[in-house]
Simulated scan of single mutants.
Amino acid sequence: MSRRLSAHEQALWSRVAATVRPIAGKRATPAAPPPPQPKPPRIAPKSTIPAPPRLINPGAKPAKSVAGATLDGGWDRKLRQGDVRPDRIIDLHGHTLAAAHDVLAHALDDAHANGDRVLLVITGKGRADRPSRIRGELAHWLDAGAMRSRIASLRAAHPRHGGGGAFYLILRRQP
């Protein structure tokens, strides 16, 4: 089974191959020319329209992010040790961003209606060269809109529940 080399791998191989001498009596095979470099994307000129001024309310406190929201020590200890059992599991792995956002919104509505407190949200880890976009957007989705008022905190999941590719979502108690 073979695969094509990436442009970076091809450049590295060319550098290594240039340092090697052929065995006496053998002909050296010519190296394949490197592929043409793609043209850099054209950058549109900046708009000359000024941005609208931001209205600042000096008395308002900035809203805390769900990722930075605090819990009491008992909750944090249980989450760190993996002693919490999720009431509901939401698997967003493999969805598009739009579909994942919709699935998350519906699952939060259902969990809130059923009185669930701990949700395990599986986003996937991604790869080193291509991190998970859903994982990157999750905190932004939860901070915005009507979802924020229902959420107490967002924490990374214990390895037994998915580790870096999953999160515990703690919902607020219902009155």
Rank of each mutant, 00 (worst) to 15 (best):
Arg4Lys: 12
Leu79Thr: 02
Pro35Glu: 04
Arg42Tyr: 13
Gly59Ser: 12
Trp75His: 05
Ala144Arg: 10
Leu97Tyr: 03
His161Phe: 10
Leu169Ile: 11
Gly82Pro: 06
Asp129Met: 06
Leu108Met: 15
Ile134His: 03
Arg15Thr: 03
Pro41Arg: 13
Pro30Ser: 11
Thr29Asn: 07
Met1Lys: 08
Gly94Val: 09
Trp13Lys: 04
Ile56Val: 12
Thr96Cys: 06
Asp129Val: 08
Pro52Arg: 05
Ala100Asp: 01
Pro131Phe: 07
Ser14Pro: 00
Gly126Met: 05
Ser14Cys: 03
Arg160Tyr: 00
Glu137Ile: 00
Pro175Tyr: 00
Pro45Asp: 13
Ala100Leu: 04
Arg127Thr: 15
Ile170Glu: 01
Val66Ala: 02
Leu79Asp: 01
Lys64Ser: 14
Ala157Cys: 05
Thr19Ser: 11
Ala113Gly: 13
Ala51Glu: 14
Asp76Leu: 15
Lys78Asp: 08
Pro62Trp: 00
His8Pro: 00
Leu142Lys: 04
Ala44Arg: 12
Arg27Ser: 13
Asp83Trp: 06
Gly124Lys: 01
Gln174Leu: 10
Gly136Met: 11
Ala98Tyr: 04
Val121Ile: 15
Arg173Thr: 10
Ile90Gly: 02
Ala157Leu: 03
Ala18Thr: 00
Gly74Trp: 01
Pro131Gln: 09
Ile134Ser: 03
Gly94Lys: 10
Pro45Ile: 07
Arg85Gln: 13
Met147Ser: 15
Asn57Val: 02
Asp76Tyr: 05
Ser65Tyr: 00
Ala105Thr: 15
Ala60Asp: 05
Leu5Asn: 02
Ala7Gln: 10
Ala17Gln: 08
His101Pro: 02
Gln81Glu: 15
Ser149Ile: 09
Gly165Ile: 01
Pro53Leu: 06
Leu55Ile: 11
Ile134Arg: 01
Thr70Lys: 14
Arg127Gly: 08
Ala24Gln: 14
Arg127Met: 10
Ala28Cys: 08
Lys125His: 10
Ser153Pro: 09
Ala113Phe: 10
Leu120Ile: 03
Lys61Gly: 02
Arg160Pro: 00
Arg21Ile: 04
Gly73Phe: 06
Asp143Tyr: 01
Thr29Arg: 13
Ala7Val: 11
Arg4Thr: 08
Ala100Gln: 01
Gly162Trp: 00
Ile56Trp: 02
His112Ala: 15
Leu154Phe: 08
His93Met: 12
Pro33Thr: 12
Pro41Tyr: 09
Ala157Arg: 00
Arg27Phe: 04
Thr48Met: 08
Gln81Gly: 06
Leu104Ser: 05
Thr96Phe: 06
Glu137Phe: 01
Lys78Gln: 13
Ala51Trp: 07
Leu104Asn: 04
Asp110Trp: 09
Ile56Glu: 02
Ala60Gly: 01
Pro38Gln: 11
Ala99Ile: 08
Gly163Leu: 05
Ser2Arg: 13
Asp102Asn: 14
Arg80Phe: 09
His140Asp: 10
Ala156Gly: 14
Arg173Ser: 12
Arg150Lys: 14
Ala128Val: 09
His140Val: 04
His101Gln: 15
Val118Leu: 15
Met1Asn: 09
Pro41Met: 10
Ala60Ser: 06
Leu71Trp: 04
Ala11Gly: 05
His112Gln: 14
Leu120Val: 03
Ala32Trp: 03
Asp102Glu: 15
Ser14Gln: 10
Arg135Glu: 00
Thr123Asn: 03
Pro175Ser: 04
Leu97Val: 12
Asn114Cys: 10
Asn57Met: 03
Pro159His: 08
Thr96Ala: 13
Ile56Phe: 04
Ala139Arg: 01
Val20Gly: 04
Ala166Lys: 00
Leu154Val: 11
